[in-house]
Design a protein around this nucleic acid. Structure first.
Lengths: 174, 174
DNA sequence: GCGAACACGTGAACC
DNA sequence: TGGTTCACGTGTTCG
């Protein structure tokens, strides 16, 4: 009969598949087909759980990275805006920005690094009797940027008058 | 006979395992047992590849993080050392550290925030005709810390003489 | 000899 | 009506 041969081939095929399954499932406890099947099910569930862990971890990681890059972008954006401002009306001479916040003022001065601008700005702030909370001076390629935070007396808390008062005292020392 | 019953239970058990396998393998193309088995093998290989990807990615990630933390540690260590130095011989008056590196000097001054120490140090550096590359001034609780990097002429490149020269000019302005 | 596991041939069901 | 798949009972082997 052809039937018996077909059935024989079917069994053979099935057994090959069982061998293939044995090849990819580790730790096959016992060698019978039933145990192999349940071990395969367990193994697949283990792999699924592992992947789930990785994916949740990856999601957290990507959130962390996204927040970091957003932080970076905000700082970068700020400095970029400032740079554009700088390039807009940039002259060789000197430029000053003043921002008053409460009792304090944030002052930014950009100038050529000649005639000791750091000493001049600090001296001007001393003349005005501003208490310095923080100052940062950086010089790159003969351009000097100074950022200072000072406490100003209340009668001086006007951005324009403050700016001109500083400019005046800076010019005095040229 | 008992034999037929045992065989019946065996077949039943095997079929249950097949059902269980069907439950955990998605996209079972056809419903016959042979296809189920080969699909299961394919699926397991997919999961394995996915996990391998995740693990190599994770390894790269952990290397990156390790390098980042090492960077952080080195900077933290440096500032800690400096802090210890500060606390060691800290007095109310004024303290100065000088480190000469090539053409430049790193100067650190800690003092009370009275009499405008920022202006005084900058003025002293101007008197000495040191070019300021960078300066950072911070004030917390009436204690002011100044860190500056300057270029010094070669005839002044001695740490002790540099320190006393600065100290002298700071005292002049008291 | 018996429990477990497997392979085999056969009948049935289903396109 | 063949082709395919499944379930079943049976024979056989091994510990």
């Amino acid at each position: 009969m052809n039937h018996v041969e077909a059935e024989r081939q079917r069994r053979e095929k099935l057994n090959h598949r069982f061998y293939a399954l044995r090849a990819v499932v580790p730790n096959v406890s016992r060698m019978d087909k039933a145990s192999l099947l349940s071990d395969a099910v367990d193994y697949i569930n283990e792999l699924k759980a592992k992947i789930k862990d990785f994916e949740s971890e990856k999601k957290r990681e990507s959130k962390r990275v996204k927040m970091e890059t957003m932080d970076n972008q905000s700082t970068v954006t700020t400095s970029t805006v400032v740079d554009q401002k700088r390039h807009c009306n940039s002259v060789n001479a000197l430029e000053i920005d003043v921002k008053i916040i409460g009792n304090d003022a944030m002052i930014r001065v950009q100038s050529e690094n000649v005639n000791h601008p750091g000493a001049r700005l600090m001296s001007a702030l001393k003349d005005l009797e501003f208490q310095v909370h923080h100052a940062s001076i950086s010089c790159v390629n003969e351009v000097m940027v100074q950022d200072v935070v000072v406490q100003v007396p209340k009668e001086m808390r006007n951005e324009d008058s403050l700016k001109s008062a500083i400019l005046m005292r800076l010019d005095d020392q040229e």
